[in-house]
Design a protein around this nucleic acid. Sequence first.
DNA 1: GGCCCAGTACTCGGATACATGCTGTCCGAGTGACTCGGG
DNA 2: CCCGAGTCACTCGGACAGCATGTATCCGAGTACTGGGCC
Lengths: 162, 162
Amino acid sequence: MNLKSQVEWALHCCAILCALPADKYLSTKALAEFHGVPKEYLSKALQALSQAGLVHTTLGPTGGYRLARKPADITFLEIVEAVEGKERTFICNNIRANNPCRPKDFCDVKPCAVARVMWQADKAWRDTLSAATLADLLDTLQVDVPADQLASTAQWVLKRAG
Amino acid sequence: MNLKSQVEWALHCCAILCALPADKYLSTKALAEFHGVPKEYLSKALQALSQAGLVHTTLGPTGGYRLARKPADITFLEIVEAVEGKERTFICNNIRANNPCRPKDFCDVKPCAVARVMWQADKAWRDTLSAATLADLLDTLQVDVPADQLASTAQWVLKRAG
DNA sequence: GGCCCAGTACTCGGATACATGCTGTCCGAGTGACTCGGG
DNA sequence: CCCGAGTCACTCGGACAGCATGTATCCGAGTACTGGGCC
């Protein structure tokens, strides 16, 4: 049970898109070159972000992606769910129904007790992810990454933006 | 990114093993029939539990599995990790290293900021799972499941125990 | 009758096929900006 | 100089291999019960 690598790519791409002027777009090609990942496959992740309404896209030359909202209004959870789907990680097949001691017509009022615990953990995971926004990530990067590297990266983005 | 169905099976099997007298064992065959799952494949999950030291096993006609510890001393996390592995769900490939604006010999002191957030969520998930024990599950079942069904199930287990 | 021993039936455990889904690639359709020729 | 058709670059979406992992199955190794033979 691993998250797909597309999740990592999507998160990093969103971080880069934060450095983009409001009226500009950055293409899949630029994002793929920046991160050193296959362009065609990365586009799948970006399409998912687009369908989820997290990024805005335009066709043609100068086309590409930009964030649809402010970094403070986009959470990690939204990005992860856009790529991985919103389904819970634990799927309950209700195998308790196979219990031979159980009446055939027995009707459960509550979900399986095992599933409830697993879903509670799933919720804790999602709550943590929804508490972190892209703006928080940017703040962290301000501390972690040397200023000159941040500046040159921003310039690289600006140069490739259309 | 879904948990394997073996996780569900392992959890339910542990719940059933709780109803077992301390000196008895329950075979894979019995557990498989009880839950309506393939015997051979279920044995894989039980092997994982055995290797993790959560259950004790014996060979021979009266052989099978039983819990290695008291239900209050076995957490959901231990069972889940026994089957799914202890690795984090988010694996960081450090794609920030591919940033063209980054000095080639740059050495990171901290893990990637994106990964840190993802790992924090992963920790929240695991913390929730490690807070729930099999004893808690039994308490929940006492409330959810009719007493007669619990009793007949316990009797079924006793009958199949060797 | 009691004890020992070989056989048997049953169990776990590892090794082996099949299916599903992630990873990666390719190509065609559609769209917007740019270029260039004509008025 | 202005306008319009054509060209180009880019996105989007689907279709297609390759591979890893989950799913399912089979067979061998080992152990406890069982029945018979022997003392």
